[in-house]
Design a binder for these strands. Structure first.
Lengths: 307, 307
DNA sequence: GCAGAGGCATAAGCTGGGTTTATGGCCGAG
DNA sequence: CTCGGCCATAAACCCAGCTTATGCCTCTGC
């Protein structure tokens, strides 16, 4: 929701209006346990600290969040709503943490993963959260790069498991398809194309100006190949986020990875336009050096991804 | 990812491992502007403060995020990845803020909205963010409740615009359909049903134990009506989140609002199972007292929702 | 009834992270 | 070669949040 170059933040920045992560976590714990003191114990702080923190959060938001009674605390109606919004923030923070933790340990971790950007950005954090709940003591390290980089690291023995989203599998590697990613054509719901029911043909698509990533990006390559090198840019932007923002604002139709726009679609900020006869589906694959079938934590991670 | 009663947080809580919102915002500003000082100016802090904050974030994460040079700063590869994860946290925080701000002003705001829970939880924050970018000075207040409550407030003149997701429109109100929400049948990707291609019939669905919300919840009501009051619970849980968590963990198939599982679907943590001959689609409607067609900010919000 | 346990609030004192102001070094442009 | 933009370091300050220490309330069980 940024990167468009417009829209400065309104006034005092977010951080002054949104409670910090600790407070949000505390609120979730209170919701789950039904008690301030219990939540405090779970987070390893004292009961007065929890009490004061919830109170200051209520002051900050201007809304009563919990009903306190001498035998426990329940969320108010507003509190339930706030807690749901808080949960989304905390989940995003968990994904951040999982990714960052993997990025941290540069070399010597037990499980070294190399992944393409799209996978590292959208899928890997979720897998790592799941992995952590099964094998809490597995340290994972992550290296992000294109298919060639992933292959190189695997073959050099510097990574145990790789993930690529290319059209072909680099030689010297075995692979399994773990999922599919489609590039999809999307527009803002107000755009004329949004109501279109007849699928768009490849020729039609190739002859229409689109909001695109810059030439050279993985997404753009796939589209160019699928259309026969013909994609016509309406605007070229240098990040997926910028493309999304432009499309949402109604600047035009865009082609993006399904993974990148899942939320926008379910919230109807964007809608898909059917396309026919264009191979916009690409495989997401786990890869490893031929022969070196994944074992141990790598095998565990792999099984999570294929779910 | 919570509410399941299992899974305690690993160790030192998230807040100690994830930079605070201010730092994440700062990182986004640096990414966008290509300069620490510039980002500092935008956020209204001094350059050394920004410098130190970015540095301490790098220390915390154990990863270099920006390449500093005497003529600007660029993100490192890892920094780009971290920034993308950070953006998701900040976006969730923006939604939180938009919702909380609306919840705050109890009575006297310029635009008073009454909405059902599902809409208030998933859709409204996004609309409010959009509204704020068009009419920055419109103060919105929010009241969440079921259809009856929404109708009552509108008719009492205590709300200007309402949103309901019921099967029928309360009498005395005019309405427009602004979107559709479907209840969908979902399972973890590993579940046998995940591979099913032939749609499931209503009878089949009614005779299979499902993970469900408790009787009385809106979602459950719709399902019971659609199936003729026959839904068989495998487990009954008291929150959408708990149902999601159970389904993701493979406990069984669940029926949930499409809005609630958008992300899980695009990340393939859940997959849909086709269902046939069951009216699981429900209208989401904007409502207002008959005759009092929305004007001013209410009209603006309404137009945003129909996009 | 009464005592004990569980739950929340208030008060006082401490600590640390984040800020500011002040200053210096580095690099490219004119 | 000097000026301007950008970043780093140092020192002083301030406040948010934590802890410890109490007190009050309510429900339960004897």
């Amino acid at each position: 929701m940024d990167g468009s170059g417009a829209g400065r933040p309104p006034a005092a920045s977010l951080a002054h209006r949104v409670p910090d992560l600790g407070a949000l976590e505390l609120l979730l714990a209170v919701a789950r346990l039904g008690s301030l003191g219990g939540a405090a114990r779970e987070l390893g702080i004292t009961q007065p600290a929890a009490s004061s923190r919830i109170r200051s959060m209520e002051r900050q938001l201007g809304v009563a969040l919990v009903d306190r009674s001498p035998r426990g605390s329940r969320l108010t109606d507003a509190g339930a709503l706030v807690t749901d919004w808080a949960r989304r923030v905390v989940e995003a923070a968990e994904a951040f943490d999982a990714g960052a933790q993997a990025l941290r340990d540069r070399r010597d971790s037990r499980l070294r993963v190399a992944a393409s950007m799209t996978i590292a950005e959208y899928l890997l954090p979720g897998w790592l959260i799941a992995l952590r709940s099964r094998r809490p003591d597995t340290a994972v390290s992550l290296l992000a790069g294109n298919s060639a980089v992933v292959a190189e690291r695997l073959l050099a023995g510097e990574a145990d498991l790789g993930f690529v989203e290319g059209l072909s599998v680099p030689s010297g590697l075995d692979s399994v398809v773990i999922a599919h990613d489609r590039l999809i054509l999307v527009t803002a719901p107000g755009h004329p194309w949004a109501r279109r029911r007849r699928p768009m043909s490849a020729r039609e698509l190739a002859s229409t100006p689109l909001i695109l990533r810059e030439t050279g990006s993985g997404t753009r390559q796939v589209l160019d190949v699928a259309l026969g090198g013909l994609a016509r840019p309406l605007i070229e932007l240098s990040s997926t986020t910028a493309v999304k923002a432009a499309a949402v604002s109604g600047a035009g139709p865009a082609v993006l990875s399904e993974l990148a726009v899942g939320e926008e679609l379910s919230l109807r900020r964007l809608v898909t336009v059917p396309v026919d006869g264009v191979a916009l589906r690409r495989d997401l694959r786990a890869v490893w050096p031929t022969g070196h079938r994944p074992t141990g934590p790598a095998r565990e991670l792999l099984s999570l991804t294929r779910a």
